[in-house]
């Protein structure tokens, strides 16, 4: 797959204790499998990737995997995850599958979308 992989699993470094995330999953450190769908290396998709990278490093350090899928090269993959907008971030693991579209510039909303932070009144 022509995708950039950025895997840093099982790193020795501990994730900074955020408290809330620990409370949600107290027993096992979750493994995050994320897929970012883009269409070519546009400024928006580069921005989305950078935003995502930064966010992952901060909130799920050492326990995430990002796969970047360029739909221009792999158009057929758009059907499986029901992609219509780009960029789309799909949280494949942990389940349930979550989707966040846009350049991920609003960190708060991304965190809510990834279940890393409770949304106001949603829980």
């Amino acid at each position: 797959m022509a995708s950039k992989q950025n895997t840093s699993r099982g790193s020795a470094r501990r994730r900074p204790a955020t408290g809330k995330a620990e409370k949600v999953r107290p027993f096992k450190r979750p493994v995050w499998e994320l897929r970012l769908y883009v269409a070519g290396m546009t400024p928006t998709s580069i921005r989305a990737f950078e935003n995502l990278k930064q966010l992952c490093e901060e909130h799920m350090h050492g326990a995430y995997k990002i796969q970047v899928v360029d739909l221009l090269e792999w158009p057929k993959l758009a059907t499986g995850d029901q992609i219509i907008a780009v960029p789309t971030l799909v949280r494949r693991l942990p389940t349930p599958v979550k989707k966040i579209i846009g350049d991920l510039s609003n960190t708060e909303r991304v965190l809510v979308g990834l279940d890393l932070r409770p949304a106001g009144g949603r829980r």
Binding site: Y37, A39, T44, A48, L71, L72, P75, K76, A78, T79, Q82, I83, I84, A85, V86, P87, T88, V97, K98, K99, I100, I101, G102, D103, L104, S105, N106, R109, V110, V112, G113
Partner: peptide, 26 residues
């Protein structure tokens, strides 16, 4: 079959519908 469901989707920032275009083109 293009499935669009609001509940599953969070929107943050800029995007376009190139994904749909690519599917249609394919």
């Amino acid at each position: 079959y293009v499935h669009v469901e609001r509940k599953q989707i969070e929107e943050t920032g800029e995007y376009d519908l190139e994904g749909l275009f690519i599917r249609l083109r394919a």
